[in-house]
């Protein structure tokens, strides 16, 4: 599948988010150069790519934390470039984001962390807040941990609490930043199942940023592979696995060397060893 091709499923089901010709540069370096991505409504879309390709930067663009140098980003019908801060915050109430480390508020216990968005955005009575929070904690299997502090949780538990917090306002779009990083196989399996179940049971749309090829193969309906600031490939995980392009093949099969070089650019090895040149 060609780099800029939009998956057919996306077009059919309608898009909840669309990036068109997005360019983003920081410190004179172009992170993205004419990026086109469409996120299909109701599906799980994976954003993949080697470290340093700007996967997290892409999430920050979609959530409006940073603005593109050029191009257009639409999320749930809103053009992010035209939104003021209040508009952006209203849009974010329809989005949930799960950070890589959970980003739980360390001075609040698990219950209060999950209740946080409800307390900030609603005037629900305490009894109703408690019921909603307990239901969400039950969904992630941590109702019994309601009174634990974040420091008492394992990495997998922290991510499950963060997931409960992300869905407590019943968002339309849920974004996961490296949800499998640093988890043991059991915790990884739990998080994997939770992402799938949450997406299907609540009728959400999910964007998962990850470089775990196997997990994405099981989880995602559609995947985009980023490389050198562009979409290198897009399609179902099976289509990506069969893609003959060298950069795709290197990533999907985990080859150490290839279009993404093993060595960081350096002066001539022999000259450096035999000469007196010392790395600056």
């Amino acid at each position: 599948m060609s780099a800029a091709t939009v998956p057919a499923a996306a077009a059919e089901a309608g898009c909840i988010a669309r990036l068109a010709g997005v360019t983003y540069a920081i410190g004179g370096r172009k992170v993205f150069d004419g990026l086109d991505i469409e996120i299909a409504r109701g599906k799980i879309t994976a954003i993949m790519g080697p470290s340093g390709t700007g996967k997290t930067t892409l999430l920050r663009l979609i959530t409006g934390q940073i603005r593109p140098s050029s191009g257009r980003i639409e999320v749930d019908g809103a053009d992010l470039g035209r939104l003021d801060t209040d508009g952006l915050y209203r849009l974010r109430q329809r989005m949930g984001m799960l950070f890589q480390n959970g980003a739980l508020l360390t001075d609040l216990d698990v219950f209060e962390n999950v209740a946080f968005p409800l307390r900030e955005h609603t005037d629900l009575p305490e009894s109703l807040v408690a019921r909603v929070v307990l239901m969400k904690l039950q969904a992630v299997g941590l109702r019994g941990a309601a009174r634990l502090m974040p420091s008492e949780l394992s990495g997998g538990m922290a991510r499950r609490v963060a997931l409960a917090r992300a869905i407590v306002m019943d968002p339309k779009l849920l974004i996961y930043d490296e949800p499998f990083a640093g988890l043991d196989p059991i915790a990884m399996g739990v998080v994997l199942r939770l992402i799938r179940n949450t997406n299907d049971a609540l009728g959400l749309t999910s964007i998962v940023v990850s470089h775990d090829v196997q997990e994405i193969g099981i989880l995602a309906d559609t995947a985009y592979l980023l490389s050198a600031g562009k979409v290198a490939a897009a399609g179902s995980p099976a289509q990506l696995a069969a893609d003959p392009a060298p950069v795709v093949r290197q990533f999907m099969s985990g080859e150490a060397d290839g279009p993404v070089p093993f060595h960081y650019p350096a002066p001539d090895y022999e000259a450096q060893l035999l000469g007196t040149e010392v790395p600056a």
Partner: peptide, 21 residues
């Protein structure tokens, strides 16, 4: 430290202004 552990970014993502909260 709240900033370093993404807690402020998480608040922004929950549509809560960290400067106010």
């Amino acid at each position: 430290l709240m900033s370093a552990t993404d807690q402020l970014s998480a608040m922004e993502m929950m549509a809560v202004d960290p400067v106010r909260r």
